[in-house]
Amino acid sequence: MILIVNGEKIEFKDEGNILEVINSLENKSEYFAVALNKTFIPKSQYLNIRLKENDQLEVVTPHPGG
C-alpha cells in the first residue's frame, strides 16, 4: 500500500490504522497531531480509521513559531 506521508510516497507492507502506520514511521516524535486527506483527525479516532491506498497523511509536531 502506498501512502503519502508528509508529502512523500511511502510503501507499507500491510494495511493498518493510523496509529499502526505512525508507529512504523522513522523519526517519530513523542508529540504529534494528524490530518488525513487534509482533515484533522483527533487522537481518539486513530484506531478506528484504516488507511487506504494513496491516502495523504500529515503528521505534525511542535516547532518554534513567531
Binding site: S29, F32, V60, T61, G65, G66
Partner: peptide
C-alpha cells in the same frame, strides 16, 4: 509565547516542547 506546527523533523522538537 507563540509556537507552530510543522511536519515531523529530526526529534529536536521534543526538546523544544518539553522546555516550554
Amino acid at each position: 509565547v507563540t509556537v507552530s506546527l510543522r511536519r515531523s523533523g529530526n526529534g529536536k522538537e521534543n526538546g523544544f516542547f518539553k522546555a516550554l
